[in-house]
């Protein structure tokens, strides 16, 4: 990356807001797998692999797959968050490979949150 100026900071911020908030980036969904030490130890890598495989198999397009750090609720690891365009994010916990497959099929592709597996929806209070 080239050296940034203060204007670049703002530009990057705007660009990302657009691209990664699913608004103007042309994506329809974002799946974030939480990969802190806890998450990885609880099997987040396997969940990630299963997620990628399932998305590939289903030929799903317009889905961002992202990794992130600990989501804070360690006793429910591994965790993933599914954000669909136009809906509040939904967190899923205690994931298994079978569960993530169901979530891909029903929520990411089908558009309906998997109620029996979901932990919570919405965003946390910041500041």
């Amino acid at each position: 990356m080239a050296r940034l100026t203060i204007d670049d900071l703002k530009r990057i911020k705007e660009k990302h807001k657009e691209e990664f908030s699913l608004r103007e980036g042309g994506y329809r969904a974002k799946v974030t797998v939480h990969m802190g030490t806890c998450g990885i130890a609880a099997g987040a890598r396997e969940i990630m692999t299963a997620l990628m495989a399932e998305l590939r198999e289903a030929g799903a397009e317009g889905v961002i797959v992202a990794t992130s750090g600990c989501a804070g609720l360690c006793s429910k690891e591994p965790l993933a968050t599914v954000e669909m365009h136009g809906q509040p994010p939904v967190k899923y916990g205690e994931l298994t490979e079978a569960k993530i497959k169901t979530i891909v099929k029903e929520h990411v592709i089908g558009g309906a949150p998997v109620e029996k597996l979901a932990l919570v929806t919405g965003s946390e209070t910041a500041y």
Binding site: T37, A42, S75, E77
Partner: peptide, 19 residues
Amino acid sequence: CLGACGLAPVVVVDHDTFG
């Protein structure tokens, strides 16, 4: 303490963590 308290009690064999 490996800092993976959410999985307690934890045993690590090589690089694999068991919780």
